[in-house]
Computed example of a mutant assay.
Amino acid sequence: MDTKSLLIDTATTLFQQKGYKSVGLTEILKACNVTKGALYHHFPNGKEELLITCLHGLNEVITTDIKAIFSRHLSTKDAILSMIDKLILNFEKNDTIIGYTFSSIVSEMATMSEPVRIACSALYENIQNLYHEKLLTEGYSNESASAIALLLTASIEGAIMLCITQNSATPLKTIATLLPSILEVNK
Score class of each variant (00 low, 15 high):
residue 101 T to L: 03
residue 115 P to L: 11
residue 103 S to I: 09
residue 113 S to R: 06
residue 103 S to T: 10
residue 89 L to G: 15
residue 100 Y to F: 10
residue 90 N to Q: 09
residue 95 D to V: 02
residue 108 E to T: 03
residue 113 S to E: 05
residue 120 C to E: 07
residue 100 Y to I: 00
residue 109 M to G: 07
residue 106 V to I: 12
residue 107 S to H: 10
residue 114 E to R: 07
residue 92 E to T: 13
residue 89 L to N: 15
residue 107 S to W: 13
residue 110 A to Q: 11
residue 108 E to K: 00
residue 112 M to I: 03
residue 90 N to W: 12
residue 99 G to D: 07
residue 118 I to D: 13
residue 98 I to W: 08
residue 111 T to A: 14
residue 118 I to S: 09
residue 92 E to R: 10
residue 112 M to T: 08
residue 104 S to T: 14
residue 99 G to T: 08
residue 115 P to I: 10
residue 89 L to E: 15
residue 116 V to K: 01
residue 103 S to E: 11
residue 99 G to C: 09
residue 117 R to V: 00
residue 92 E to A: 10
residue 119 A to M: 07
residue 107 S to P: 00
residue 120 C to N: 09
residue 115 P to R: 07
residue 115 P to Y: 13
residue 106 V to Q: 02
residue 121 S to A: 15
residue 93 K to G: 09
residue 102 F to V: 03
residue 115 P to E: 12
residue 121 S to L: 13
residue 97 I to P: 00
residue 102 F to H: 05
residue 96 T to H: 03
residue 109 M to F: 09
residue 116 V to M: 02
residue 120 C to S: 11
residue 100 Y to V: 00
residue 116 V to G: 04
residue 112 M to Q: 07
residue 102 F to G: 03
residue 112 M to S: 11
residue 108 E to Q: 01
residue 106 V to F: 13
residue 95 D to E: 11
residue 116 V to Y: 01
residue 116 V to N: 01
residue 102 F to A: 02
residue 108 E to I: 02
residue 105 I to F: 05
residue 108 E to A: 01
residue 103 S to M: 07
residue 110 A to Y: 09
residue 107 S to G: 12
residue 96 T to I: 04
residue 118 I to W: 06
residue 119 A to S: 10
residue 102 F to K: 03
residue 89 L to A: 15
residue 98 I to R: 06
residue 120 C to I: 11
residue 109 M to N: 07
residue 103 S to W: 05
residue 90 N to D: 15
residue 92 E to H: 12
residue 100 Y to A: 01
residue 118 I to P: 01
residue 103 S to K: 02
residue 109 M to C: 14
residue 96 T to K: 04
residue 92 E to P: 06
residue 103 S to Q: 11
residue 111 T to N: 12
residue 115 P to G: 12
residue 96 T to S: 06
residue 93 K to D: 14
residue 95 D to L: 02
residue 106 V to N: 01
residue 119 A to Q: 05
residue 113 S to I: 07
residue 119 A to T: 08
residue 117 R to Q: 02
